[in-house]
C-alpha cells in the first residue's frame, strides 16, 4: 500500500487577487472579500496522487493548514478522490511564514503517521515562495525533488523523476519516502464529478488544533516564524500618462500599427 500525503493551501482566488491592496493610510490589507480557492498548482499535486492511485493500491490523505474556511478546499480534494482529509486550524497557527508553515505541516504529516510520498504544488499563488515543500522534507528528514514535471519511474521504492530546469530538465533518482513539489507540466488536473461530490459526503475531515498536534505555541504561527513583515508601504507605481486609442476596430489597429512603426518595431 502506497501512502500518499498531498499538502494543499487555500489561497485568495488568483483571478481576483489583484483587488487585494494596501490601504495607504492604515497600511493594512484591504481584502475586498476575495474568496478562498484551492491553490492552482496544488490541483496538479492532487492529480499526481490520483494517477498513482489508479495504478497502485494507494491511500491519499489531504492536509491543509488554514482558517476553518479552508475546510472547503479539503472537501474539494475529497470529492476529487482523496480518502481522508486533515485540516490544521488554530488561531495560534496564524501569521506563519514558510518556515513555521512547513514546521506545522510536518507535524501534521508525522501525526498522520504513514507516508511514502508527499506531494506539494511547487508554489502558492499568494506567497510564491516555493519553500514549504523542501522545508517539510528537511523537518521530516526526507529527500526532496522540487519542480517535478514528469514521473519517469515509480515502481518500487526508488523513483526516477524529471525536474524542470531552465531550457531543459534534471533527471533525479530518489528513495522513498520522499517529498516532491510539482509543476503544472506534470499533468492535467481532472475536474470535479457529481459522483465524486456525493461520495465525499461520507468522507471525514479531521480537525487538529495546536493541542492535538502537541506542539508549543512558540514554534508555530507568527511566534514560530523567523521572518516578519516590518513594513508595508503603498508604492508609488510606475505611472505613465496613457493615451487611449479610440475609434472603430479598424481605426484602432491603424493607430497602433502607426505607433509601432514610430517605436521602430515594424
Amino acid at each position: 500500500m502506497l501512502n500518499i500525503v498531498v499538502c494543499v493551501k487555500a489561497v485568495p482566488d488568483p483571478k481576483e487577487a489583484c483587488n487585494i491592496k494596501i490601504d495607504p493610510d492604515t497600511k493594512t490589507l484591504l481584502r475586498c472579500d476575495v474568496p478562498l480557492v484551492l491553490n492552482p498548482l496544488d490541483k496538479h499535486a492532487m492529480e499526481a496522487a490520483l494517477q498513482l492511485k489508479a495504478q497502485f493500491e494507494a491511500r491519499i490523505s489531504v492536509l491543509s493548514m488554514g482558517p476553518p474556511e479552508a475546510g472547503n478546499i479539503v472537501k474539494e480534494c475529497l470529492a476529487l478522490g482523496a480518502d481522508q482529509g486533515y485540516l490544521l486550524s488554530d488561531p495560534a497557527f496564524g501569521g506563519a511564514d514558510a518556515y513555521a508553515t512547513a514546521f506545522t505541516l510536518a507535524k501534521g504529516i508525522r501525526k498522520i503517521g504513514s507516508f511514502d510520498v508527499i506531494f506539494c504544488g511547487m508554489a502558492s499563488s499568494d506567497g510564491s515562495t516555493e519553500w514549504v515543500g523542501p522545508e517539510i522534507a528537511t523537518f521530516l528528514g526526507l529527500p526532496v525533488v522540487t519542480l517535478v514535471k514528469k514521473i519517469v519511474e515509480c515502481k518500487g521504492a526508488s523513483w526516477i523523476v524529471k525536474a524542470s530546469v531552465e531550457n531543459g530538465y534534471r533527471l533525479a533518482q530518489v528513495k522513498l519516502p520522499a517529498v516532491f513539489t510539482v509543476t503544472r507540466e506534470l499533468n492535467t488536473p481532472r475536474t470535479l464529478s457529481f459522483s465524486g461530490i456525493i461520495k465525499a459526503r461520507k468522507k471525514d475531515i479531521d480537525h487538529w488544533s495546536l493541542d492535538e498536534l502537541g506542539v508549543s505555541s512558540e514554534s508555530v504561527g507568527l511566534k514560530g516564524s523567523p521572518t516578519i513583515v516590518s513594513e508595508l508601504n503603498a508604492q508609488e507605481e510606475n505611472k505613465r500618462q496613457v493615451e487611449i486609442l479610440t475609434g472603430t476596430r479598424e481605426e484602432k489597429t491603424d493607430m497602433l500599427v502607426q505607433k509601432l512603426v514610430e517605436a521602430g518595431v515594424i
Binding site: 511564514d97 514558510a98 516555493e130 519553500w131 522545508e135 526532496v144 519542480l147 516564524s225 523567523p226 521572518t227
Partner: peptide, 15 residues
C-alpha cells in the same frame, strides 16, 4: 530555489 530552503531549514532560519 531548491538549495536555499534546504539550507535555511537546516540552519533553522528564515528565507
Amino acid at each position: 530555489r531548491e538549495l536555499a530552503p534546504l539550507v535555511a531549514a537546516h540552519l533553522k532560519t528564515g528565507l
